[in-house]
C-alpha cells in the first residue's frame, strides 16, 4: 500500500512537472526576433508595475491621445480610471476626455464599427481586456515591433502580428523603424561561438529580421520610446485587472485571518483528540 501510494505520487509529480515544462514552450510573438538573434517568436518581457501610478498616468495619457480614436475601453468608466490613477477630476476632464462624454460614462468611441471594417479590413478591437487575452509581454512586444514595409497598404508591418491592419500610430514618437539584416556570430554545435579553426576569428553569418530605428528620426530616443510603451502596456494591464492591487491586499488580510483560524482550530482539534486515546 505504501509503495503503491509512493509510486502514484512520483508519477503525479513528474506528470505535473512535465506539464509545466510544456506550457512554457510555444511561439506567441509571431516572427519577432530577439535583439541578439537567438530566439524567434518569444515575446520580450514587459517589466510593469501596477503600483507605479506615474507610469500608469503616462500610459493613460498616451492611450487617450493616440489609441482612443479607434480602440474603445467600453467596459471601463472614466471616473474609475481617474480615481484609480489618482488623476484629479478636473485635470482628467480637461485633458483626457474628448467630446461631450461624462465622467461616469463608459469609455466608448464615436467610430462606426462597420465603416471601420471597410477602412482597416477589420474593426479595431476593444482593448479593455486585451492584456488578459494576449498577456502584457505580447502587447509590449507588439507595440515596439512596427517596421516600414512598402508592400503593405499602410506602409508598415508588424513582426509580432504579421500583416496587421493597424497603422503605426506612434511613428512620430518612435521614428522610422526598419527590418534589417545583420552579421551575427555563428553558434557552434557545442553551444559556444563558432571560430575559424586557423585564425581563431569569430565566424559570422547573415541573419535578417532585426529591428533598427533610423538615427534621430523620432521625437523620443529608443530608451524613452521603450519606457513609453511600457507605460502604455502597464495601463492596458491595469485596464484588464483594475482591482489587482486592492485584490492582493484584501487577499493578504484574508490569508492572515485564515492562518490564525486554522491554528486555533488545530489547537481545538488537538484538545478533543486527547479524549480518544
Amino acid at each position: 500500500m505504501k509503495k503503491f501510494t509512493l509510486a502514484l505520487a512520483i508519477f503525479l509529480s513528474s506528470f505535473f512537472f512535465s506539464l509545466g515544462l510544456s506550457a512554457a514552450a510555444g511561439a506567441p510573438c509571431g516572427n519577432y526576433l530577439s535583439s541578439d538573434g537567438s530566439t524567434k517568436g518569444e515575446c520580450e518581457e514587459a517589466y510593469i508595475n501596477p503600483k507605479d501610478k506615474a507610469s500608469l498616468q503616462r500610459g493613460a495619457q498616451i492611450y487617450m491621445n493616440y489609441c482612443l480614436g479607434c480602440h474603445s475601453l467600453k467596459y471601463a468608466r472614466y471616473k474609475r480610471v481617474s480615481e484609480d490613477l489618482e488623476i484629479p477630476l478636473d485635470m482628467f476632464q480637461a485633458n483626457l476626455i474628448f467630446g461631450d462624454q461624462k465622467m461616469g460614462d463608459l469609455i466608448q468611441i464615436g467610430m462606426d464599427s462597420k465603416e471601420a471594417k471597410q477602412w482597416f479590413g477589420n474593426t479595431p478591437p476593444d482593448l479593455t481586456l486585451e492584456a488578459g487575452l494576449r498577456g502584457a509581454d505580447w502587447i509590449y512586444t507588439y507595440l515596439t515591433s512596427f517596421y516600414i514595409d512598402d508592400s503593405r497598404p499602410l506602409g508598415v508591418n508588424n513582426k509580432v502580428y504579421e500583416n496587421v491592419g493597424m497603422p503605426h500610430v506612434l511613428i512620430d514618437m518612435q521614428g522610422i523603424q526598419r527590418s534589417v539584416c545583420k552579421q551575427i556570430p555563428l553558434i557552434a554545435s557545442n553551444g559556444g561561438l563558432k571560430q575559424d579553426p586557423l585564425s581563431g576569428e569569430l565566424l559570422t553569418g547573415e541573419k535578417c529580421g532585426f529591428l533598427e530605428v533610423d538615427n534621430n528620426s523620432g521625437e523620443l530616443n529608443p530608451e524613452e520610446f521603450a519606457q513609453a510603451m511600457l507605460d502604455l502596456t502597464n495601463f492596458l494591464a491595469y485596464m484588464t485587472d483594475p482591482m489587482k492591487v486592492e485584490r492582493e491586499s484584501i487577499g493578504t488580510y484574508t490569508l492572515l485571518y485564515l492562518f490564525v483560524f486554522t491554528m486555533l482550530s488545530y489547537l481545538l482539534y488537538r484538545e478533543f483528540k486527547k479524549d480518544l486515546h
Binding site: G251, T254, L255, L258, S265, Y266, F272, K273
Partner: peptide, 21 residues
Amino acid sequence: VMHDLYAIGVFLIFFVTIMFF
C-alpha cells in the same frame, strides 16, 4: 467536526490563495 474545521481552514488557505492571487 473539530477535525474537519481544521481541515477546512487549511483548504481555505489554498482556495483563497488562488482566488486573490
